[in-house]
Design a protein around this nucleic acid. Sequence first.
RNA 1: CGGGGUAUGGCGCAGCUUGGUAGCGCGUCCGCUUUGGGAGCGGAAGGUCGCCAGUUCGAAUCUGGCUACCCCGACCA
Length: 600
Amino acid sequence: MRMSSLFLRTLREDPADAELPGHRLLVRAGYIRRAAPGIYTWLPLGLKVLRRVETIVREEMDAIGAQELTFPALLPREPYEATNRWTEYGDNIFRLKDRKGVDYLLGPTHEEMFTLAVKDLYSSYKDLPLSIYQIQNKYRDEARPRAGLLRGREFVMKDSYSFDVSDEGLQASYDAHRAAYIRIFDRLGFEYVIVAAMSGAMGGSASEEFLAVSAIGEDTFVRNDSGSYAANVEAVVVAQAAAVDASGTPAAHVEDTPDTPTIETLVAALNANHAREDGREWTAADTLKNVIVMLVHPDGTREPLAIGVPGDREVDAKRLEAQVSPAEVEAFDEKDFAANPTLAKGYIGPGVLGEERSSGIRYLLDPSIAEGSAWVTGADEHGKHVLDLVHGRDFTADGTIQAAEVRDGDPSPDGDGVLHTARGIEMGHIFQLGRKFAEALDLKVLDENGKLVTVTMGSYGIGVSRAVAAIAEGNLDESGLCWPRNVTPADVHVVATGKNRDRDGSVFDKADELTAALEAQGLEVLYDDREKVSPGVKFKDSELIGVPTIVVVGKSLENGVVEIKDRRTGERREVAVDEVVDEVLREVRGDASGATKAGA
RNA sequence: CGGGGUAUGGCGCAGCUUGGUAGCGCGUCCGCUUUGGGAGCGGAAGGUCGCCAGUUCGAAUCUGGCUACCCCGACCA
């Protein structure tokens, strides 16, 4: 690539609409341009990076025998009608009509198309197992696109699906994908963690996410010190607390606690007027907080739900949503309270909660609330709370729910140490869909006995354009980007510092020659051969663009040497002109952690 | 969907309070000089001041309405 003719314009100043450092640099260095909110143009340099990420994904998918195909991005409505997703996706789907008024959509995901394609072509167990994939643009009309490529409305995704007759076969396909994903993310070169995840609205069992560890990530995950446990916070399963002996607990008794509608005011009132017998102060953890939310089911029906959690914890909205999906959660507002007169706002207790009690509202407890444990909680009357209310003796719930917030320092569910929380960017998600989806679309094959059996499926995704953004965010400094070798738009950046071919002929001649020699070795070379551009500008641009190895041909040519610069460390060294090609090859190939090695 | 902000040449911004020839920096083009860290001087091109209406002799500026975009939250890969 000759910079004198490359379609590129670097910006000296940050774009005003970019917030994240990596996004700013991708725009400034001329990799991408915003075309519309959440929609980006890939300029030549950016496209090179995107293609290299795609190539790594493609190589590893092919290596496990998955076969590539491409579905249209513009899809008919019918298949999505069959799985009810035309409705369930709601406003998140881009919809359009053709000239006859027939509905179409821009594919937000392609489960239906994959499943129907297999149904169309295959009908025997002998055809399976099968894994097929595509690398395709996906479209989601996000309520609020943000963070540049990390959450766009158009994005590039690799999605694959496995089709098996048996559960064992599905497990094998899943394991193969998991191993391929590990190789892919190793080659892409970022720090990632594999966490247990929720499988989402389509159901299914085993599910894991690959998260790039990053403070700017939108997902929260937890892990313990030994690494034996890691999970998306949504998927953490808190163990049921063991029952405790309640024989010494006095009978439950209602006390006046005026003006205590919050846990904070309640604890203060308890300590002022109802001192504990054991002399310890009351804390929020002694109270049972009952939170009411309104579930909105996909068919539009509304159902209130009561959740009991220890008073020192909040209900985690994401955990709750994951548990009740596909229902959505709305706040329980004043109108709802008015419609449920047995609920005394601020003093709600188990006395009225539960399907069998006066409110009729389903009541689910956090599993940390042990049978036999005693609580202070609302007495369902304004200004009154009940003390020594024992779970199992004085009240019961309709079940448990994993919806309380998970905190740093909580015990690890596998019993090994405590949990720490961190943030990550979801880069990949693999899960065993099972038969639910194939059933919806009636995907069956004949087995050895000539009987029709429903196929079992796995679903595996990687955010390809998101990977470019995540790599950029993780590989930059104050001067610009610093690409890992496996995804850099060029292997080496040759800078000719001359400004004028007439006067600096020897510099340009040598740089031309060197570029040709490097290209002859199969390297992708970005060559700054611009005239009338001062050396300072070329140096700044080379740092902004972030090719890992920079070769400067200039002044020192008089002494028969050129300069090789490491973009990441800033280290520079002089190398004799006739040794440069070998030296660069050594850097590019020797240092290629992951890509060439893992691919070999 | 709630809260906040912004809208002026390709990019970044000033001007608006107090109405009167639309400005600055970067970038682009021409000339001369310069030549290893975003060069200097001189010249030039490039703008329906988001849109609609109103007030006014006169609106980027004042008033009303609308729209778009950005950020935080809610929601989702």
